[in-house]
């Protein structure tokens, strides 16, 4: 049930982010700064942390289940769900680093 609850928080963040884009697209600097101020509100930061926690829970359980449903045969050995979790978590960290470096700091 906890896994299914992650979908609610993913939905909420997605809708909030689309709303943020709508405010940015309105070209109203005061309104956008007001929304950024809302993001700085401690309650909002706490809520965002909860969303991130549920999202990461989704990620880890998704990686684990992928390893369970689709084990990969390497030579005589077969991968385990824990291996899938570890490898995909490292991959997720690498992708996250790449996103920050390329799109945000690198200005690509």
């Amino acid at each position: 049930m906890l896994r299914e609850l992650t979908s609610f928080f993913i939905m909420v963040f997605s809708l909030l982010y689309i709303y943020q884009l709508s405010v940015l697209a309105s070209r109203n600097a005061a309104a956008y700064n007001s929304y950024l101020g809302l993001l700085r509100n401690p309650v909002m930061i706490l809520f965002s942390t909860i969303i991130l926690a549920f999202c990461l829970y989704h990620s880890f359980t998704w990686f684990y289940l992928t390893g369970k449903v689709q084990p990969v045969k390497i030579g005589k050995r077969t991968t385990t769900p824990v291996m899938s979790l570890v490898v995909n978590t490292v991959l997720m960290a690498a992708v996250s680093y790449g996103v920050v470096q390329l799109f945000l700091l690198g200005g690509l």
Binding site: L39, C55, S59, V99
Partner: peptide, 18 residues
């Protein structure tokens, strides 16, 4: 959402506001 969403949540809703 498993690979790409966490970084977006973190940078937009946690790292930048803090």
């Amino acid at each position: 959402s498993a690979f790409l969403l966490p970084v977006l949540i973190y940078i937009n809703n946690i790292a930048y506001p803090l």
